[in-house]
Structures are given as C-alpha cells and as structure tokens.
C-alpha cells in the first residue's frame, strides 16, 4: 500500500507557507486559507494537517492518530498516506529537509 507512494514515511511535512492552517470556530472545523480561497477540512483531514508541523515524521503521525482514534494502525496508515498524497499534490504541504 505504501510502497507505491511519493510520501516518505521518515519525512516531516509542514504546511506550505502560502497556506494558513487553523481552527475556525465559526465553521466548527479546521480550515486552510490561501490566496482567494478557503478549504474546510473534515475532522480527520484537520487532525492529519495538525500533525504537519515540520517536526513529526509520517510514521510518528500514524502512531499518534492510531492511538488518538483507537483504531487499527494499518487502516490509519492507509488513510493518512492517501490524504497526504492529495495534500501534497494540491501544494498544501511540503517535506522539510532532513536534519
């Protein structure tokens, strides 16, 4: 499942500086704001992007979310990688250089 992806499990992703990611109380949701646009995220999308802090590897993110949602790790891993692929293709996130 994860061997055909361009998402690097050991990489830390961060929100691309063109985008502003934050909680929006009036929408009861996380939102991504960018030039002349808004994306309202569902709960899982918001949780995943909240871990794109430039400091958490994809592996660590999956562990944290599996614990948080009390879910099977494989299922969480599949969902996270799929979402990160979309987020990366849309330019919302980028991989931080390895330290």
């Amino acid at each position: 499942m994860t061997d055909q992806t361009n998402i690097d499990m050991a990489a830390c992703y961060s929100i691309h500086p063109t985008f502003l990611f934050r909680w929006e109380a009036s929408q009861d949701a996380h939102v991504l704001l960018y030039p002349e646009g808004i994306v309202k995220l569902n709960e899982t999308g918001g949780s995943i992007l909240a871990h794109c802090d430039g400091d958490t590897t994809v592996t660590a993110m999956i562990d944290a979310l599996a614990t948080c949602y009390d879910a099977k790790r494989d299922a969480v891993a599949e969902g996270v990688v799929k979402f990160l692929e979309v987020a990366h293709a849309k330019g919302w996130i980028r991989a931080e250089p390895r330290r």
């Binding site: 929408q27 939102v31 002349e36 646009g37 808004i38 994306v39 309202k40």
Partner: peptide, 9 residues
C-alpha cells in the same frame, strides 16, 4: 478564482 470552495452557510 475569487469564490472559495465552501458554502458560506
């Protein structure tokens, strides 16, 4: 490009 992809409710 000025219409956000969100229903304003």
């Amino acid at each position: 490009g000025s219409v956000p992809s969100l229903d304003g409710e």
